[in-house]
Simulated assay, not measured.
Amino acid sequence: KTGTLTHGQPVLSKVMAAPGIEEDELVRLAAIAEQYSAHTLAHSIVVGAQQRGLTVEPCTDVTETTAAGLTATIDGKKVVVGKYSFIAEQDPSTVRVEITAGELAVYVAIDGEFAGALLLRDELRADAPDTLQWLSALGVRHTLMLTGDGKVTAEHVARELGVTNVRAECLPLDKVRAVEAVTDRPVMMVGDGVNDAPVLAAANVGVAMGARGSTAASESADVVIMKDDLHRVARSIEIGQQTIRIALQSIWIGISLSLILMVLATFGLIPAVVGAGFQEVIDVIAILNALRALGTSRWLVKLHLAPRSLQPQQSSV
């Protein structure tokens, strides 16, 4: 998702208030409502209000609509904060503001009338391009970006990373349907927000960025990255692949050596007692080889400390 490929900490960059509405008042009302949400954008708006020296007071009757926005009563006014479509339900005359690449807009309505929009900017993570390159080298053939952000922001992020398959303005259910519709399996989904919990559970392998993500996402995922390092998504795949290779090696080593001893025993070349002893030796060899998997993560970390040096092979699509 987009928020995983960016820093996930948008900064309030611009306030566009409707006529008759002061910018600080618009930010204050939005922040008071958003303080009750766990969404990343909500936190950014609250921080933006505090940086302006505004007081974020408690309010009443707060209702959050998943992946849409919040409704709250503030100073006797009904304040609605959220996506364009959510605000347009309150006031059909809501104006969609122009945003540039890397920006996203949060809209506000007061007492059923469009009051303005708050523009936030989020930058691409420095480790995102390396991670996608690394995934490609590991054989990941298709990359799909699912996001609840607007089309302009989503396409900007995708263009920077070379991702061609993008679906913007997705609700949590839309993300689940998109993952279920993918024919190539297995499918791995990487996310960190509370809204990502359903799609992480729907994927064959759900990976949660637990260091900065929500508890719900971590509980729904199969893999939790405990450090805020996107490289570890690719590293976890490589560790898994290497572990499978070592496991198969151990199986075939055990089978091969056992077959050789069986043939020798059949022709009477080794006594039964010696054969039994050799079988124990074979078990020890297979176990010791399998234990190599414990050191897999260490040498992979050293091998890929500088992923930019990777020269990935072009995988088929």
Rank of each mutant, 00 (worst) to 15 (best):
Q249V: 08
D127G: 07
A115S: 13
L230I: 07
I251S: 06
G213A: 12
G213T: 13
T153V: 11
E98D: 14
G268W: 12
V224C: 08
E180S: 11
P92W: 01
A168Y: 02
V182L: 15
D192N: 10
V207L: 13
V97A: 01
A290Q: 10
A216M: 11
N195T: 06
P271W: 00
G76H: 04
T100Q: 15
D222K: 10
V190D: 02
G295C: 10
V81F: 06
N195R: 07
A88F: 00
G76Q: 04
L41E: 12
V199K: 02
T147Q: 02
G162W: 02
S44H: 08
A126L: 12
I87D: 00
T55Y: 11
L146K: 02
M145K: 03
W299F: 15
L26E: 02
G148Y: 02
D222N: 15
L12P: 00
V205K: 09
L294N: 15
E123G: 11
I99H: 06
L291I: 15
L41S: 10
Q249C: 11
E57Y: 04
K1E: 13
I99W: 06
R167T: 12
P58Q: 10
A202R: 12
T6I: 04
V157S: 00
D75C: 03
E22H: 13
S315W: 07
K302E: 14
F114V: 01
L54T: 08
T143K: 13
A42R: 08
G240P: 02
D61E: 15
A109K: 01
Q133L: 10
I244F: 14
R292V: 06
I21A: 09
E123H: 14
L118R: 03
A208Y: 07
V182S: 03
A68I: 00
A31D: 03
E89K: 08
L104P: 04
G254S: 15
S214N: 11
K302D: 15
E23H: 13
I270C: 09
R185D: 07
R141A: 13
V274C: 02
L259I: 13
A158D: 01
I21F: 12
K175L: 09
A276D: 09
L119Y: 03
M145H: 01
S93Y: 01
H156Q: 09
A197P: 03
T131Y: 04
T183K: 14
L269I: 10
P58H: 11
E22A: 14
R177E: 11
G139A: 04
D24C: 05
V152K: 11
R185V: 05
E280F: 14
T63D: 13
G69L: 01
A117P: 02
K151C: 04
Q311A: 12
R167G: 00
A203S: 13
A211K: 08
M209D: 07
D196H: 06
A42F: 05
E98Y: 06
D229R: 13
A38T: 15
L118T: 03
K175P: 07
V274G: 03
L291N: 13
T60P: 04
G3S: 06
V81S: 07
V56Q: 03
S315I: 11
V62M: 04
A276T: 13
R28N: 10
A128G: 09
I237L: 15
G102D: 05
A265D: 03
V190H: 04
F114G: 00
Q314I: 05
L5F: 05
V79F: 00
W252P: 02
I270A: 09
V284E: 14
E238S: 08
R121P: 03
G206D: 02
V273I: 15
A221R: 02
L70V: 11
V274T: 14
A17E: 09
